[in-house]
């Protein structure tokens, strides 16, 4: 916890459905420098988890920082975290603030 930013929250999302079910916008060199959750689809793993909220900004995925990553790369990292068989969950470090 000492390593976390004061306003950040760690959320573990179990892979409970065949999709993650979030839409993100943002990435390096855009108006939204870190990816922000813009949609949570009903029936997806993220929705089932119940702890993700629209508007939250994703700082890290499984401990990997999304800072300075362009949109496509951030999206790829999240997609790979969902796809990997190594873990049956994804850890998101989130903040409410930009």
């Amino acid at each position: 916890p000492g390593l976390l930013e004061p306003t950040s929250t760690l959320v573990r999302v179990p892979k409970s459905a065949s999709t993650l079910g979030i839409a993100i916008e943002g990435g390096a060199n855009t108006r939204q420098p870190l990816p922000r959750i813009v949609t949570i689809q009903r029936g997806g793993s993220a929705h089932n988890c119940g702890q993700l909220k629209v508007g939250q900004v994703i700082l890290e995925v499984n401990g990997i920082s999304l800072r300075a990553r362009e949109h496509q790369e951030a999206a790829r990292l999240i997609a790979e975290a969902f796809k990997t068989k190594e873990k049956d969950y994804i850890d998101f470090l989130l903040t409410e603030f930009n």
């Binding site: 993650l20 079910g21 993100i24 916008e25 060199n29 855009t30 108006r31 969902f82």
Partner: peptide, 15 residues
């Protein structure tokens, strides 16, 4: 003249 740098909006990706 507008001096503020405006960054482009981001695309949206469904995951």
């Amino acid at each position: 003249r507008e001096k503020r740098l405006t960054l482009p909006p981001s695309e949206i990706t469904l995951l």
